[in-house]
């Protein structure tokens, strides 16, 4: 494992705490009725988002699924813009037209969150192709769940990327469940992403997705390969979602003790231990935790205070001229 500075570790801890706090806020706001629709929380997946992001440059592209709050925030979306979007506010990332499942931060080259399983995987291949066409060294990442590995777009995309040797990294967040069903019950291989890589002449990579340092290192290797023209990688990160699939799901299908076992390997606990190990004092760590707490609280209040997006938003942004006119 490569060395990381105390500052790096602290910065990742900060980011992961912000994500965790924002997800908790999303849950609470949903319970009080301020967030409508549905949310798919990523608590437990923070190390994948923050670790991968740490291996990227700002100009690289990231594509996410409907469980994508953590990816948007890891690339720079503020907790306030995230929560405001969930609450349909004018200050939301998409001004209330996307919601939880479509968080996007184009200014950060976070190209969106997509709610049709697997649809964004070919798009990430497209942004990688675009980098080749424009002769930049940008790398693209598609994050997706284990469930996406059984859909056609996943296979079409990886094959094309492998044939064209495109700078794209396919990162599977294997949290053991496709919605309510264990992924192992519906998949013919043990590792739904990694075991498929061989079909496209790519190596089998399975890593601990709850250790931010492990994720950063593995993604950094794949990024270096991609920038050097070596083509795509598939990385399967083993992780666990702390909440159910969506707000409608109490996750009663999980065997007793499974959540508790995974909570022992909570990515925040793992990283906190690393901080201590690297000589960061308990006071400093508590200082980070308190500061993040304040940041999230302020984000919640500001998002709550913002006005709903204007009703005119319903009829804008269909076309490039900003309008909705389809006939004269």
């Amino acid at each position: 494992m490569t060395n990381s500075t105390k500052e790096e570790l602290a910065s990742w801890y900060d980011q992961m705490l912000v994500i965790r706090g924002t997800e908790k806020a999303a849950y609470d706001l949903f319970m009080t009725g301020l967030v409508k629709g549905t949310t798919h929380l990523a608590s437990g997946h923070e190390a994948v988002a923050v670790g991968a992001s740490a291996a990227l440059k700002p100009e690289d592209y990231v594509w996410a699924t409907y469980r994508g709050h953590h990816h948007a925030m890891a690339r720079g979306l503020s907790p306030e813009a995230c929560l405001a979007e969930l609450m349909s506010k004018e200050t939301g990332a998409c001004r209330g037209k996307g919601g939880s499942m479509h968080l996007t931060s184009a200014a950060n080259n976070m190209m969106g969150s997509y709610a049709i399983i697997g649809s964004h995987i070919p798009m990430a291949v497209g942004s990688a192709w675009s980098a080749v066409l424009r002769k930049t060294d940008q790398v693209s990442i598609a994050f997706f769940g284990d469930g996406a590995t059984n859909i056609g777009a996943f296979h079409e995309a990886i094959n094309l990327a492998a044939v064209w040797k495109l700078p794209v990294i396919f990162i599977c967040e294997n949290n053991l469940y496709m919605e309510y069903t264990p992924i192992s019950a519906v998949t013919a291989v043990q590792h739904p992403a990694a075991d498929r890589a061989a079909a496209y002449s790519l190596p089998r990579i399975v890593i601990d997705g709850n250790d931010v340092l492990v994720v950063r290192d593995e993604v950094a290797k794949a990024v270096a390969l991609a920038r050097a023209g070596g083509g795509p990688s598939v990385i399967e990160c083993l992780t666990y979602r702390h909440y159910g699939h969506s707000r409608a799901d109490p996750a009663k299908y999980r065997p007793e003790g499974e959540l508790e076992e995974w909570m022992m390997r909570d990515p925040l606990k793992v990283l906190r231990a690393r901080l201590v190990e690297s000589g960061v004092s308990e006071d400093e760590i508590t200082g980070i935790e308190n500061a993040v707490d304040a940041v999230v609280k302020e984000a919640i209040e500001r998002a709550k205070d913002a006005p709903l997006s204007d009703i005119s938003e319903a009829f804008t942004d269909v076309w490039a001229d900003g309008g909705m006119q389809w006939r004269n």
Binding site: P122, A124, V125, G126, W129, E156, N159, L160, W164
Partner: peptide, 28 residues
């Protein structure tokens, strides 16, 4: 071949990749 790209029979990859490229500075 740098302007005209042959693909496998993969309609989702064709349109999806074109879309990702279109969103990032190319006109496919």
């Amino acid at each position: 071949p740098t302007r005209i790209w042959d693909t496998p029979i993969s309609e989702q990859a064709i349109v999806g990749a074109a879309m990702g490229a279109a969103m990032t500075g190319v006109r496919p």
